[in-house]
């Protein structure tokens, strides 16, 4: 009897759910793996287990594994679950830089969406993929397409839950930023703050700081609130153990210090950002920080070069992800 209980897929499924809540990747993978295997004679349980495995892997940013898991989950799931899985798979491809593939899937899903919330969620993802594509390839900037999907989502604004309002307004703000309308970008981000839960505030404050930073660089106006936003972001991110938001905050702070000619302080802050990003496996960010450090060093020649040389050797080499970053 006890053997039957021990190998019950339901028990492992529940354990996996708990591990996901605790953000324990190894625990989650281990438990959900057993739940998936043990449910081979139970199609309904298999559908639930593969669905949870896919969602969990996405939450842990295991995108390549998530794409494989979703292929498997789609054999057992239908209807709303299959719709969600296909959306997740497109998002995973986007996170891996395959934005055009993601866009194609989102467009198919938008045609299939049968309620307003689903339409808004897909439109948010379409705007995300277009904005990220444009961020990395500015020559492909496609304002009309982005605006079309943001407008489509916006018509249901009063019907959607607050967490979707935050995402929609955030992406609308980024759209205005790329168009060069900083005032509009800032006002929309501030509106997003009104709908946000505390744990989501650091991302918005980081974006506000980033917009103000660009505003200052282009208009030459001293903006004291940048530091305030970064300090608040760091405090709240620390409270929720959001290391990625902390790292982004350090990165912006480093760029701000550079603008204020605090080169050595800025280098320390940028190295702090680099360390945090690599610990979080945020390799594209790590690279951005290294490029920024290189830019600083190129402008400041000999003495700074020696300091940078020493620090980069010590910090980059001791970083467990160093080899991975430069393997490509």
């Amino acid at each position: 009897m006890s053997t039957v209980v021990a190998f019950s897929p339901g028990k492992y499924y529940e354990d996996a759910q708990k591990m996901l809540e605790k953000k324990d990747l190894l625990g989650f993978v281990s438990k959900i793996g057993i739940a998936v295997e043990a449910s081979m004679n139970d199609p309904e349980m298999k559908a639930r287990a593969t669905y949870l495995e896919s969602k969990g892997l996405m939450e842990f940013y295991q995108h390549t594994k998530a794409i494989e898991s979703i292929d498997e989950a789609l054999k057992y799931n239908t209807g709303a679950e299959a719709f969600e899985l296909r959306k997740l798979q497109a998002t995973a491809r986007g996170f891996l830089g395959k934005f055009n593939q993601a866009l194609n899937t989102y467009k198919v899903l938008l045609d299939e969406a049968n309620d307003n919330i689903a339409v808004v969620r897909i439109c948010i993802n379409l705007s995300w993929a277009y904005l990220m594509l444009n961020r990395e390839n500015p020559e492909e900037l496609n304002f009309e397409e982005i605006k079309k999907y943001l407008d489509q989502a916006n018509q249901y604004f009063n019907e959607i839950p607050d967490f979707l309002k935050v995402k929609l307004l955030n992406n609308l703000s980024v759209f205005h930023f790329y168009k060069g309308d900083f005032d509009k970008s800032i006002s929309v981000l501030k509106e997003a703050v009104n709908y946000a839960e505390e744990k989501d505030i650091p991302r918005l404050y980081n974006n506000l700081a980033e917009v103000y930073l660009e505003y200052r660089e282009q208009c030459g106006i001293e903006i004291t609130s940048i530091s305030d936003y970064l300090d608040k972001s760091e405090t709240i991110a620390s409270k929720y153990d959001d290391k990625l938001a902390m790292a982004v905050s350090f990165f912006i702070k480093g760029k701000l210090e550079l603008m204020d000619d605090q080169m050595f302080t800025a280098l320390d802050t940028l190295f702090l950002a680099f360390t945090h990003f690599t610990e979080e496996e945020a390799y594209s960010y790590s690279l951005e920080v290294l490029l920024k450090i290189n830019e600083v060093v190129s402008n400041h020649k000999a003495e700074c070069m020696r300091i940078m040389q020493k620090k980069l050797n010590n910090k980059a080499r001791s970083n467990p992800y160093y080899e991975k970053i430069f393997k490509k």
């Binding site: 995300w128 995402k167 955030n170 991302r203 980081n206 506000l208």
Partner: peptide
């Protein structure tokens, strides 16, 4: 510049 976000509990692009 600021980061856009997709639907879901995800942070910016990684």
């Amino acid at each position: 510049g600021p980061f856009p976000y997709p639907d879901g509990p995800y942070s910016a692009q990684i």
